[in-house]
Design a protein around this nucleic acid. Structure first.
Lengths: 349, 349
DNA sequence: AAGCCAATTGAGAGCGTTCACAAAATATGT
DNA sequence: ACATATTTTGTGAACGCTCTCAATTGGCTT
């Protein structure tokens, strides 16, 4: 197990008969290199299998080629049981890594204990040691004002995913209002006249938008507010179960349920089974998330598919552009998709 | 957006009235520092908010504090539709990051296109630029001999997750044979006399073990081989559906199905619903994976829970130990869990 | 009190790159 | 052909840390 000698920029320079700096120019795609020289250097890079050392690059004052993604520990699988976990992460990873890879960047993930109140020290530590070119904030961190302020003061470009508008940031999101309108209208057109909404937390931006659009779509169709009950206020399975039990026990219960995430939609499937209601004949169910496994549920869930991977990918792309000195700040809305599977149908009778 | 001056080791040294090197000793927990001095330095580190720069550390010849995890692109959510994707990643992440965090390490994830035949160049690039202290290989990469050889020659400590025995590596796995024995016996005790197994790929180590144990457990109970049909040979939903349709159309069809992963277990749920079979009354189903969402299926799946997070955590822990010059190579078997939920029951009649 | 060993501290070099220049080569205009 | 711009190339310093090794300190022995 002997370490093979690692080839450095000097080795390439010597082999190509040029200086260190010229090789540097070539690998960074810099201007002012004669085509012939560039080619000769590239050949040597290839031949020697040279790969620039990221640490040295960083030391030399260049970019770090690192994008840091900050994630909430509470939302990992560790907390699936309690219902707080989700599986965004898979999609995030895919979207982020794919984009990073394209630019020879790397994505480093950090788990932060939001609840412990040590968010900023934890992030300071990661940012201080890694010195990333950009930071990606996912919920709930993207709404943490103190944190966002701190990052801004550090001068590190920052992207928020699932956050709307604001400041000198990259903000990436989808059209939550439009999606809710589409979903509600779909149900209305099917003939539903009473629709329940299992809503997410009040302080979660996208959920706010969806609540608003839900109410508006109902009002627009002349449905009275009491025929559009809103429940929950978090994303947990258990909570959704008990809210549903109440909702469906009402005198004229909803014939359709819109859930703010998959887990609550699954809760609807469970409660329906317990109550002997057939989905979609007796109860229609729509989810707002569409994590990959959803398509394999029985019956397969109709859902709004959040462009999670694309959002993280976009966030990375913008941060990378920024690190190259290009323009990048701004707000970006990505298209969602309404995937009609097997849990929506006209109500009985 | 002005960058705040970053505090370096020299700043701390000056503030504490000692040399650079003494500060270095303190932050690395080195020996031979007077308690009084150590305390003074630590106070200054705290006060100035000093965080060592990872790149500089690496350049100075120390460890990189980076663990690289190599993942197969084909298994990401991108390929959920085709059925190749899974959601290991969430759990991996959690297990790996938690462990890394504990030691102030960081986990970098890399997506590799196994199918493209460019595995080694891709990994060489990542390893060359990052210079991680260790590499974690997950399926199917852990079984890629060429890759494993290459890494060994590079002298980078390497951990394989889901791989048994062998060489100068960290190997982490669970007792697949024991799990299969337990599951099969559970079904046998319930009274099942014909059990189908939707098996994973033949070249996937854990699946091999499970096949073997399945056959043995059946033989031990005096069940003839034809009452223990094995099908599939990959992990895809669609394949499982068609295999099941055949299996369940047999003269005396299985009354229980063991699936090698969740997706195939979901397929069993689907086919049962299509055929009008009630789970678990008419058909018992057990999965070998237990990704987080499984508990929310209707009905909730009985499953072997793979200790995925723990396995990656262990892999990280060993690699980190190794990077500190401690012992670490070896094979580690982690305990699985048999979670009985609502999809197993005695067969009818 | 001198001598010796161990514990503690510090100084200088080096890691591989990019930066800011300076130098050399080439092109342009008259 | 000459001076002047422009492109192309190279040089030394710097980045922040750890390494190696030398210097200092302190305690113990004799």
């Amino acid at each position: 197990m002997h370490k093979p000698a690692k080839v450095t920029i000097e080795d390439v320079a010597a082999a190509a008969g040029v200086s260190r700096q010229t090789v540097s120019r070539v690998i960074n795609n810099g201007p002012n290199v004669k085509p012939a020289v560039r080619q000769r250097v590239e050949a040597m890079v290839e031949q020697l299998g040279y790969v620039p050392n990221l640490s040295a690059r960083r030391m030399g004052g260049a970019r770090s080629y690192l994008i840091l993604s900050i994630n909430d520990r509470a939302r990992t699988f560790e907390n699936w049981t309690s219902g707080r976990g989700n599986d965004w992460v898979d999609q995030m990873l895919y979207g982020g890594m794919s984009e990073c890879e394209r630019h020879n960047y790397h994505m480093v993930l950090e788990l932060i204990d939001t609840d412990a109140g040590t968010t900023i020290p934890q992030i300071a530590r990661a940012v201080g040691s890694l010195r990333p070119d950009g930071v990606i904030l996912t919920p709930p961190h993207c709404d943490n004002l103190e944190l966002v302020d701190w990052l801004e003061r550090q001068g590190i470009p920052c992207a928020r995913v699932g956050h709307y508008e604001g400041g000198n940031f990259v903000d990436v999101y989808m059209d939550d209002e439009g999606a809710m309108r589409e979903v509600t209208r779909h149900l209305l057109e099917l003939g539903h006249r009473s629709i329940g909404f299992l809503a997410g937390p009040l302080n979660y931006g996208p959920s706010q938008k969806r609540r608003k659009a839900f109410r508006e779509a109902l009002a627009e169709a002349g449905i009275p507010p009491e025929a559009g009950p809103i429940g929950a206020g978090n994303f947990y399975f258990d909570m959704a179960v008990s809210v549903l039990e109440t909702m469906l026990a009402a005198p004229s219960p909803p014939t359709a349920i819109i859930a703010d995430n998959d887990k609550m939609a699954f809760a609807a499937l469970h409660v329906a089974a317990d109550l002997g209601l057939k989905v979609p004949d007796d109860l229609s169910v729509i989810s707002f998330e569409d994590t990959p496994g959803v398509r394999f549920s029985v019956p397969p869930l109709t859902a709004i598919r959040q462009p999670t991977a694309a959002m993280i990918g976009k966030a990375c792309a913008q941060l990378i552009a920024l690190s190259k000195g290009e323009e990048g700040m701004g707000a970006f809305e990505l298209p969602y998709e309404f995937v009609v599977r097997a849990t929506t149908k006209a109500p009985r009778g």
